[in-house]
Amino acid sequence: MDFTLSDEQLMFADTTRTLLGDTCTPEHWRKMMEQDVAFDAARWATLAENGFTVLMLPENAGGLGLAELDMALIAVEAGYVALPEPLTESAGVAMPMLAALAPDHSLLADPKAIVAIAPAINPVVAYADQAAAILIERGGRTFLAQREDVTLVAAPTIDPLRRVFRLEWESTRAEDLGPADWGLAQDRAALFAAAQGLGLAQRSVDLAVAYAKERTQFGKPIGSYQAVKHHLSSAQVAIEFARPVVLAAAAGIGAQDTYSRARVSHAKLVALEAADQAARAAIQVHGGMGYSWEVDVHLFLKRTLALTGAWGTPAHHRGRVAARLLSRPTGPDQTFAREAANA
């Protein structure tokens, strides 16, 4: 039993933070919004050059063969910069699924290739406009449709740095890859959404802390007032108790049983709740500025809103926690329980 990250993992997270911090700055967000785009090809190329897009691909497919926990650490950093590009959904979910279904697929050989993913659970497909192809779930089977063989109808969303689409397609114009592990794909996506939630939450708190130190009213920095402090402390508490759940969910995701699914759901629920609490606290702490487009906090509120509903609603995830709670042994000795051990 060892609930610590390895030195390599900590270093990797650190490198990611620096790389994303340099390439996805407030200036970048604002420029993208001005240009009304939600994809930066140069940044994506940098991510690809640094191996982020092949992180979870097996080594024999040119990947790094890393696990969900490693990707989750990246996803936290992606959330921290409200990364517009589909790093977790393409490199963390779609590509590994494609590699499992069609290990020799030519798309796997191109680190810059983006594959979008359309599970039955999501009514819209995110980032499909940037994708070379789309993996689609239908009737338990998996189809790979080339981007040019589908029709994408943009569904405007509140998040200015995210694009989602309704998909029109025909199975006759797509490759039938047979049954796939959609349960695993959904768990991965929910996990990475949760991990992004941690990053989103921390950024909201950090933005508010920075502002509260500078802004003065009544002759003092507003951050010296207890009401302001307590908003942010409470948000930080929520983050601190979501993080270990996210990490444990990532470490245990492979079991694919009632317990591991419940933990992923728990992670998704509480990490995005923390992000929501933190974003709202940050808006309040910024006062009128917080309600303005000029201050970046709204980006974190909006991404949180998007990820809260995507990859299983809170009701869906509460149901999975309930299934574990009400149908399996509970109690102090069951924290790390698995199906096999209880069989």
């Binding site: 039993m1 609930f3 270990p244 759940v245 509480v270 709670l325 924290t335």
Partner: peptide, 23 residues
């Protein structure tokens, strides 16, 4: 929903303490 929440809170606390203990 509250019963589920109570369970999740207890789990989160346990995981956090395992993390602290490991550290």
């Amino acid at each position: 929903a509250d019963v589920i929440r109570a369970f999740m809170n207890a789990e989160a606390y346990a995981l956090s303490i395992y993390q602290t203990a490991s550290r």
